[in-house]
Structure formats: C-alpha cells, structure tokens
C-alpha cells in the first residue's frame, strides 16, 4: 500500500535559517499521525509543506506516491482538509457558508448545500436550526472549531491536516473535540496528520507519534514503542516530561504505556476489579482505586489493554515527581 504522505530528505530554510534539515517521514493510509514537539521544532512547517502552503527548499514530498509539486495546486488542496489553530472561520460568512465553502467551490448544487451543512452539524452535536445561520462571532471557541473541522471534512477529503487545532481552547472543549476527531476518523477512515505540542493530546489522538526537535524527526512510532524504547534521552524526557499542568489530568493511557501495567490478574483478585477507559485521567483512577484494588483499562472499543493497581500508580507518580508542577 502506498503511503498517503512521504517525506524524502525534505529540507526547508527561510533565508539563512534552516528550519527542517533532511526529514524522512511516512504517513500510512487511514492513519492518525501526530507530529509533536516544542515550538520552533519545525512541526507546523512540515505540515504546511504537505499542502504546499510552504515549499521545501530541498528533497521531496510525495502525496499518494506522487510528488506534491506535480499536482495542480487546487486539486492537491482539495484532497486535504485543513484545520488551523486560529480556527480562521470567515467572519463574513454564516456557519453554513463556512462549512460548505469547498463543496460550493467544487460545484455542488446550491440546493444541496444546506442539507449537507445540516447533516454535518448534527454529526458534531450542534442543532442545525439553531446554528446554521449564525456568524462565527456568535459562537464559542469550541463551537467555532467544530465548524472549523466540519469545513475541513465537508467534501470528504482523503487527508486532513490539523495544525494545533485545540491549543487555544479550554480543557473541557479540548477533550470533547479530541473525542470528536477520533469519532469522525472512525466514520470517515481518512488519513489525519495532527500537529501539537501537547504530549497528552498526541497520546490520545495518535496511532503513531512523530517527535520533532530542532527541525528533525527524532522518532516516529506507536506511543507504546516510544514509551518503552525511546531512541534517545531527549525523546524519553520529552515523553515523560509532558506532564499535564495538573497531575490529576494525566491520562490513564500514559501510565499504561510506561510499562507499569499488569497483564494478568492474580487469581484472588477477580472480584476486586473495576473498569475504566484509557481516555480517563488520574482523577477518575484515584476514585476507582479507592474502592477496588484493580482497574481494567480498555480502549475505545472496549478491548482490554491491561490492569493497574495502587502500587503501580504510586510508582508512576514517584518517577515523575520532579516534573510535576
């Protein structure tokens, strides 16, 4: 299967200033790939080279096996939804007009646009009757970015690029929008390239995570792989160091990935187990563990990923105490 996106020795410099130095990267079809790194690491520039908002100064970007520069620009961009950190809904257009911008440009009959917008609004839990005629300024930040996402996926593009889409949102909106991305991905089965500086978000969203620093992709692998076999100290520290601002908000999945989980329950513990999704955070875990000795952690689909007990949690906390804030 061809890679949805492939970077071959891609370089990018702004004048004298090298931002990306020889980057190789593969994103597979249908994958949720997260580029994570601190600011200035080159992750956003990398993302923008995929839809040619930036042009590489060396190397090659391939999209579906074909060099990006060989696509007609509009065709390339219409293959890729784009979600911005600044959301950037057009303030002069209504919700409907924003959502159906690309279908309209592609020539979808006007009569179908409203219907299309309504059905999309319903998918993200916004009442079409209430929202379709509103202007962006009449929406909350979370609502705006829901529309931003709908705008990106309205014409069902095979690839969606997301550039720190939730970093300006409050934690509650952020969590629910992260769930939305996972939901929509399950339905649409598209390829997502997601840029963030938040390791927790990367863990939640990504099938695979690429860790960037100083214009280099240090390691691209599954969260578990990165947690267990970091390629160097920087990656290990970055992964561990990305403690949530509030320790209580640390996702349960992160404790699992750092090899703290128990795979088999002792025989006498069967009656003493609670169940929790990997999306849950420490706060939820504390509550459950105050009543039961063991917690079974499952993924979205309910598949068992492992068990945790009080000892393991305390172990995780003690290892990370110096990074707590």
């Amino acid at each position: 299967m061809t890679n949805a996106i492939e970077f071959k020795n891609v370089q990018k410099a702004f004048g004298e200033n090298t931002v990306i130095s020889g980057m190789d990267m593969n994103v597979q079809q249908g994958e949720r790939f997260v580029l994570v790194g601190s600011s200035g690491s080159g992750k956003t520039t990398s993302l923008k080279m995929i839809n040619r908002l930036e042009l590489p100064t060396g190397g090659e970007v391939l999209v579906n096996g074909k060099p990006a520069k060989e696509y007609p620009l509009q065709e390339l961009r219409w293959m890729m939804g784009y979600v911005l950190q600044q959301i950037a809904l057009f303030p002069n257009m209504t919700v409907t007009q924003n959502i159906t911008l690309i279908p309209e440009m592609k020539g979808t009959p006007k009569s179908q646009l409203q219907e299309m917008a309504d059905s999309l609004l319903e998918q993200v839990g916004l009442d079409p009757v209430k929202y379709r005629g509103r202007y962006p300024r009449e929406l909350s930040g979370g609502e705006q970015q829901r529309i931003g996402i709908l705008r990106a996926i309205s014409s069902d593009p095979p690839i969606v690029l997301m550039d720190e889409p939730f970093s300006a949102l409050d934690p509650i909106s952020r969590a629910s929008l992260q769930d939305l991305v996972l939901d929509l991905h399950q339905k649409l089965n598209n390829t997502i390239v997601f840029v963030t500086h938040d390791m927790d978000e990367a863990l939640k969203i990504g099938d695979r995570i690429g860790i960037m620093s100083d214009g280099q992709l240090l390691q691209a692998a599954s969260p578990q792989e990165i947690a267990q076999h970091p390629v160097n100290d920087f990656v290990r520290d970055f992964f561990r160091g990305s403690v949530s601002k509030n320790i209580y908000d640390t996702p349960v999945s992160k404790i699992l990935f750092t090899d703290q989980s128990i795979q088999e329950l002792p025989n006498d513990a069967v009656e003493d187990v609670a169940t929790l999704s990997e999306d849950a955070v420490l706060r939820d875990l504390f509550k459950v563990l105050s009543a039961k000795n063991y917690v079974e952690i499952t993924d979205h689909t309910g598949y068992k990923k492992g068990y945790l007990n009080r000892q393991r949690v305390l172990n995780y906390l003690s290892q990370n105490e110096d990074q707590g804030e």
């Binding site: 839809n51 908002l53 620009l73 509009q74 065709e75 390339l76 961009r77 219409w78 890729m80 784009y82 911005l84 600044q86 959301i87 950037a88 057009f90 303030p91 911008l101 690309i102 440009m105 705008r151 690029l161």
Partner: peptide, 10 residues
C-alpha cells in the same frame, strides 16, 4: 490566518 485558510481551501 484567514488568508492562509483561503489558500489552504484552494
């Protein structure tokens, strides 16, 4: 950002 969005949407 709006200019960028407009460009990105082709």
């Amino acid at each position: 950002a709006l200019e960028e969005a407009a460009d990105a949407f082709g």
